Amino acid sequence: MSDNWVVRNLENALETWNDKLTEIWGLLTATPEEFKGGKIWNVILDINGALQVIGTALLVLFFVVGVMKTCGSFAEVKKPEHALRLFIRFALAKGAITYGLDLMLSLFKIVQGTISTIMNSAGFGQANETTMPQEMITAIENCDFFESIPLWAVTLIGSLLITVLSFIMIMTVYGRFFKLYMYTAIAPIPLSTFAGEPSQHVGRSFIKSYCAVCLEGAIIVLACVIFSLFAASPPQVDTTAPAVTMVWKYVGELIFNMLVLVGAVKTSERIVREMMGL
């Protein structure tokens, strides 16, 4: 790291950005069981198991309400084909509550496989780091004290924006994990709605919403891959321009690329929901 205070200011911000991007890369390939050592997952499992009792009670309620709304009379219920259909619906709904956790984990693993395929196809084992061009570092180090004052102002603003963007991005990825945990914990209650035909749309919406949260990871990975390609080809540095102009153009283009990445990460939920028709 350079001893120049202007260069060091910008390098610290880029180091924060690279650290957060690496952390995001690791989070997107992690499973809920591995996140934070699995302590959160164990609590979620306990909550899910406790809510299965409530889900089973609601299962009976939704089933009875569904029978009352879909059957015109008791004689209709006694018809073999209708009774069989009701029995199959009840059994499937009970299975969804009992094995819903396994189903959700299977869906998550499918999406994780998609994420791994995207990474392998792009040829990225990790996100590319964003670094300052050596030409710009040399130009800054050759400036005297008074020339460094406007440079310090430019890099201070740029560093602040880069740091804020890095934390916004990591908070979005952490938010995805929170949503995964909440969906998993509360799953038995919405899954119980499959027992009644009038209420089954709630269960379908829940499954589609959970799939959307899982697929957010794939959209975020795509955004990170695209940004990594930008990072591999950093903004051009005009060595003939004054140091202030050189730094201003570089920082401006760099922040623009970062804004595009953060925007893609922040809108990943909306993109996936639009794709799934939610």
Score class of each variant (00 low, 15 high):
Asn4Cys: 13
Gly277Val: 02
Ala231Val: 11
Glu141Gly: 03
Thr172Pro: 00
Gly125Ile: 05
Gly263Asn: 03
Leu84Ile: 10
Lys109Arg: 13
Tyr174Trp: 09
Met258Asp: 08
Arg89His: 09
Trp5Ala: 12
Met104Ile: 10
Ala122Tyr: 02
Val221Gln: 01
Trp17Asn: 10
Thr117Cys: 04
Ala127Trp: 03
Gly125Asn: 14
Ser192Phe: 07
Val202Gly: 02
Met68Cys: 02
Thr22Asp: 11
Met136Ile: 13
Val265Leu: 05
Gly72His: 06
Ser268Lys: 01
Phe146Glu: 07
Asp102Ser: 13
Lys36Met: 12
Thr16Lys: 11
Glu81Asn: 09
Tyr174Arg: 13
Ile226His: 07
Phe124Val: 00
Cys214His: 04
Glu34Leu: 08
Lys36His: 05
His201Gln: 08
Tyr183Ser: 01
Ala218Tyr: 07
Val53Tyr: 10
Met169Ala: 15
Cys214Met: 09
Ala50Pro: 00
Thr184Tyr: 09
Val272Thr: 10
Asn120Phe: 02
Gly158Val: 04
Thr240Arg: 09
Glu23Ile: 05
Thr56Trp: 05
Ala185Gly: 11
Leu259Pro: 00
Pro80Gly: 06
Pro235Tyr: 06
Leu156Gln: 07
Val251Ser: 06
Leu10His: 06
Pro80Ala: 08
Ala50Glu: 11
Phe35Lys: 13
Val251Gly: 06
Tyr210His: 07
Asn42Leu: 15
Glu274Arg: 11
Lys78Phe: 04
Met1His: 13
Val173Thr: 15
Leu14Asp: 12
Met1Ala: 15
